[in-house]
Amino acid sequence: MKKILVTGANGQLGSEIKELAGNYPDFDFVFTDIADFPLDKEETIITNFNQLKPAIVINCAAYTAVDKAEQDVAVADAINHLAIATLATLCEQNGTKLVHVSTDYVFDGTSPMAYKEDALPNPKSVYGVTKLAGELACATNCPDSIIIRTAWVYSEFGNNFVKTMLRLMTERESISVVNDQVGSPTYAGDLAQVILTILDSGKWESGVYHYSNEGEISWFDFAKDIKEIAGKTCEVNGIPASSYPTPAERPAFSLLDKTKIKAVYGIVVPDYKVSLKKMMVKL
């Protein structure tokens, strides 16, 4: 039985992997989070890894407070970059397979078309810079690793855009949502399934992959879909990102090209609205 270490297990993606773990009786899952497997201390990572001796690591842990990271640079770098360097080194030394989850924020958002895996990264925020550094450390220290970039993640667990919109639509008569940032949402339940499908396939092709749901929408479009599915009456107005300044710059365009993951692993990617309805039914 293969032991799989899942870090960041209480986050959105880790929680969704937990939900699906029972479907994979051949895997022995060990779910850890910041309390029992902190990633900001190198010696703790080494001690915990050597105790657990996993066959596979799925790293879902990250410093994801995008705006806070602009001030909290050292901690963001410790978790998103230095910890990954240590984990990747340990995986390489022990013959452990590593799946590392990254982000659309490694790009600057100026592309005229969906980003392919080999597009040139150019992060515009501390979060993006530290996540890119983590990717590079992962690929350098453990060349056989799989890196999956994703975007606009939401789920029934944790804090996310969908849950925030539902709350605001209940509390207010009207809300304003940015209409000039374009991408495609990712239901964490779908991404969790993709990762487990890859691990269960018996086929391991290292490298960078992109995954999000199908569709090309703005946050404003996303909010309108949430409103429609939930049957809310709140008015949703579109505004430019310039009207809603944030400490960290967001990519204006973060659509990810999923051709590679479909071709290599036969992944069927659901339309974002299908997955959104599925998640909202669970809520």
Rank of each mutant, 00 (worst) to 15 (best):
T64Q: 12
M165N: 05
F107P: 01
D33M: 11
S145G: 08
A263P: 00
F161I: 14
N23K: 13
Q71N: 15
S155D: 07
A21R: 03
Y63L: 09
D271S: 06
A119G: 06
N94T: 11
K273D: 06
H81A: 15
L82Q: 13
S111M: 08
L191H: 07
A230C: 08
K258L: 02
D200K: 15
T259D: 08
M113W: 13
I198R: 03
D271M: 07
Y63S: 07
F157D: 06
S243W: 11
K262F: 00
G266E: 00
K97I: 05
P270G: 03
K273S: 08
F161E: 15
E135N: 06
Y24A: 05
T130Y: 10
K53R: 15
E43Q: 13
S111I: 03
V208E: 01
I79P: 01
G8P: 01
N80S: 11
V269F: 01
I175C: 01
T44V: 15
M1A: 14
E156Y: 14
E19G: 00
K163R: 14
I175D: 00
E135W: 04
I261H: 00
L132S: 04
L20R: 08
P38F: 07
A55F: 10
A230Y: 09
L82E: 09
R167T: 11
V6L: 03
T259Q: 10
L39R: 04
E249M: 13
S145W: 02
D77C: 15
C142Y: 01
S102C: 10
R167Y: 10
E19Q: 08
P251E: 06
K68M: 14
L196T: 05
D180E: 06
Y24P: 02
V178S: 06
D190W: 08
V182E: 10
D144Y: 04
F222E: 04
S206T: 09
R149Y: 02
E16V: 02
S174K: 07
L87Y: 00
K68L: 15
P121N: 11
N122Y: 13
V6R: 00
N159M: 15
T32Y: 07
T259S: 13
T110G: 08
F49T: 03
